[in-house]
């Protein structure tokens, strides 16, 4: 056959397609595995097998690692929104809406999402790298030999800690974002603090808070579940640990964005 001598058409396309198919294959495998891990973790949780000590260790780890950066991210997000709308709305005589607008954006979207981003980058990546290293160093096999289920020991406390810490962190970050907006509204838009806070108070409804908390809990569960599953399914060496960590971060971002849309649709699409 003379196929060797013929120039290949679109050689890069073929490579790209192969890479995409391989990534899709890995994605489907990970999703299946994550669903299996979730089911196993739920069964352990319902039978009271969550170790309080490990849960508290993980909760402390998430708080210490990610709270600072999520506070900074949301504080500045609130300031940016206020910066963009305060002057304009004041000029239009609608200054009393600045607080409402900032608080709605912060509570419904930015606080849970920015907290999620912080947790993905600081905690999800650490989970994935830690568990991938444990896997390639046979530490996970050692757990199995000692009759300890890795899902109970490694995944359950991380998922529970993440699902409970993210809502708590979201409350704090939302407060930071609203305060950031208030400070900027005062200096740029000339709005006094009382008017701003009154506007916030008028706008914020209980379902905004519930929605934000549910979003944060779902994001926390998704981030921890995906990161730990990707870590535990790592094979190979140090290069694969790096690939798993990157994959955990990218897929957590994507999963969180999809969940954000779905939850926003459920909680907020018909509200106004």
């Amino acid at each position: 056959m003379n196929s060797r001598s013929q120039p290949q058409l679109f050689p890069l396309t073929r490579l790209l397609v192969r890479l995409l198919l391989s990534e899709l294959n890995a994605l489907l495998y990970t999703l299946g595995l994550a669903a299996h891990h979730l089911k196993t973790a739920c069964l352990y949780f319902l039978s009271g097998k969550l170790s309080l000590k490990q849960y508290l260790e993980q909760a402390a780890f998430i708080g210490v690692d990610a709270l600072g950066i999520s506070l900074i991210l949301t504080l500045f997000s609130g300031m940016v929104i206020a910066l963009q709308v305060a002057q304009e709305l004041t000029k239009q005589g609608a200054g009393e809406l600045v607080g409402a607008l900032v608080s709605m954006a912060i509570l419904r979207e930015l606080a849970p999402v920015m907290t999620g981003f912080a947790v993905i980058s600081m905690v999800g990546s650490a989970y994935s790298a830690e568990l991938a290293t444990m896997t390639i160093q046979n530490q996970v096999d050692a757990l199995k030999v000692l009759h300890v289920n890795p899902v109970r020991y490694l995944i359950l406390p991380r998922v529970c800690a993440s699902m409970t810490m993210l809502p708590l962190m979201t409350i704090l970050t939302a407060m930071a974002g609203i305060v950031g907006g208030m400070v900027i509204s005062y200096f740029i838009g000339g709005l006094n603090y009382n008017n701003y806070l009154e506007s916030v108070w008028r706008q914020v409804q209980p379902h905004d808070i519930y929605g934000a908390l549910v979003k944060a809990a779902v994001f926390g569960g998704l981030i921890a579940l995906l990161s730990t599953t990707i870590g535990l399914s790592t094979t190979g060496g140090s290069r694969e640990v790096g690939i798993s960590t990157t994959r955990a971060v990218v897929w957590s971002f994507i999963a969180m964005s999809i969940a954000d849309f779905v939850l926003s649709f459920i909680f907020f699409s018909g509200v106004s």
């Binding site: 830690e130 444990m134 160093q137 046979n138 530490q139 096999d141 050692a142 030999v145 000692l146 009759h147 300890v148 020991y153």
Partner: peptide
Amino acid sequence: LVFQYSALFDSLTVFENVAFSLIET
């Protein structure tokens, strides 16, 4: 099974590693 490269849990102390089967198993 005693693993080739020990496979000790590196985030735990020697005490926690050795007592692991009594605490967790």
